[in-house]
Design a protein around this nucleic acid. Sequence first.
DNA 1: CTGAAAGCGCTTACAG
DNA 2: CTGAAAGCGCTTACAG
Lengths: 337, 337
Amino acid sequence: MATLKQVAAHADVSVQTVSNALNAPHRLRSDTLVRVQKSIELLRYRPNRNARSLRTSAVELVGYCVPSWPGNKPHPVMDQFLHALCSAAETSSRHILLFTAPPGVKGMTVYDDLHARRLVDGFVLSQTETHDPRHEWLAARDIPFVSFGRVWGEESQPGSWVDVDGAAGCAAAVRHLHETGRRRIGLLSWTKSSGLAEDRLSGWRAACKELRLPTGGLTVRCRQDSTDEGARGAARLLDADQPVDAIVAISDVLALGAMREIERRGLAVGVDVAVTGFDDSPLARVVVPGLTSVSQPLDEIAAALVRQLCDAEQAPRELLLEPGLVVRGSSLVADGN
Amino acid sequence: MATLKQVAAHADVSVQTVSNALNAPHRLRSDTLVRVQKSIELLRYRPNRNARSLRTSAVELVGYCVPSWPGNKPHPVMDQFLHALCSAAETSSRHILLFTAPPGVKGMTVYDDLHARRLVDGFVLSQTETHDPRHEWLAARDIPFVSFGRVWGEESQPGSWVDVDGAAGCAAAVRHLHETGRRRIGLLSWTKSSGLAEDRLSGWRAACKELRLPTGGLTVRCRQDSTDEGARGAARLLDADQPVDAIVAISDVLALGAMREIERRGLAVGVDVAVTGFDDSPLARVVVPGLTSVSQPLDEIAAALVRQLCDAEQAPRELLLEPGLVVRGSSLVADGN
DNA sequence: CTGAAAGCGCTTACAG
DNA sequence: CTGAAAGCGCTTACAG
């Protein structure tokens, strides 16, 4: 493996001129530059990143804790986000370093260690939870980080974040359902009061009010994010005195449960009762009929996060992105119009 | 951030004694060791990994190319594998560095660059394809790597590999179906002759022969790995003069298509016709009835790969692991027995 | 525009 | 058992 010294000897210049040829080419006379570049090419020289990092104390590596859901449940859009994050990092000549850590404050020693030993320059946080303690912990220690998702605290959140406007997403779902003829739209949410759930619920409520649709008694809170719970919740909405003709679920998994319950009753999803989900996970594409779902702009999110982390001055400290709505068979036009 | 020098000064020893306290504690007199450890603790010292790597020329980072399927299709078990790989690496005090690369030989400059610049010590390859060119390319350049999956060449494969016995997996599925009363078991495979597909098919055929079950005309080759193709393939198996009473699919996606087609015909999956898949992806758990599926021991695979890469001498160069079979509602006992 | 010097923070033989 | 020296391969001021 060629070193700077060898290239310098070959091109008959000093090592530092070779270094300049790489990092500040404008400083060289053009003929020198060409000569050095030829030597670099010939010797297939590639700068040793460790030496560089030791000198500059920047490793150009971003730590990312690989999500692990309780009960081994997969993150709905993990691979898509990871791919987006990886690509975004590479456009800033960074790479992603993966690690595992226990949830909550307990895991912070891992973050600290990774940073202190200079394995990473900073972190991208995801799976942000309501009152997530990681943000404050990192900010207090001046460890660089950015967050996908908000902590939903009362005060302003430490550090930069990017998030998707969940309220807008659910509002879009409601508007779409209204346009396709639905008039009684239930909401399937989670029980534990999470900022995420409340955000999405608020969008549903606001859109219903705006369209003069009913909201009273149309909210069901599921105990967990499972198809069984989704089915149970849907059953309650369908058993009401005035049954719903559409269900907005705040996750794809709840939506799938709702679809199952609708079918179990001999009703047709998308015809008798429409359903929408959230996340546009792989599941949404694979079921029949396909599940209409709010989709997060993951590429945009990843790019914004990397920008916040790497060009902190240039990027907005807080960024709320509009989600899209992917319409599939689960929300056809009502009454065959 | 404390350095070795500062710790040395604090403990009143030389830097190299501190280094030894960390890397070869047995060389120190116990009272010196204790004193040094106290200083380390007090100054919250953590060795700078870049300096260490520069000196030892080992970065303890393993490169892994994040899978990207054509058409943005998610890898069925990507998050599970990645989590397993990350954990396995950490038990050997390594970490995973993620990167993207074009498929085939075209992407090899990325691998080469990553290795030459010493961002990684070596690679874990997955998504191994039939006649995958990467293995030979890396071996020819003495770049360390291990492979999840075989290249299915005629000659012995360059480098170490770990794989799952697909034939055994499909054979297990056949045996399970036979035990639950199925007697005419079709196979849903892929069209393009891939080693993977042929391997799984061979297991199905062998088990059928062993159990004196028919195999003639019971193989359908789908053009791609999609539910639509799976449904079409299943239709052919169900339309035959002697229809099948069970379908072994070599992927979960094909199996899902088969389930859909069976239901479309008013038949009950798991009762009238049983179905099994391959991979035990998240999809298998979420559909109704649940999909019986061959499951790969991802933790074991990941651990074996890391062992091969990091303790090449200790680990077997080639390792074929037995998959499991997760039985769910799609393969209930036939005829309500 | 180019080069000699110092130094980033470690580890590795080697003396003592 | 402990320490003085050299060096891993770069970059960063600073002279010339």
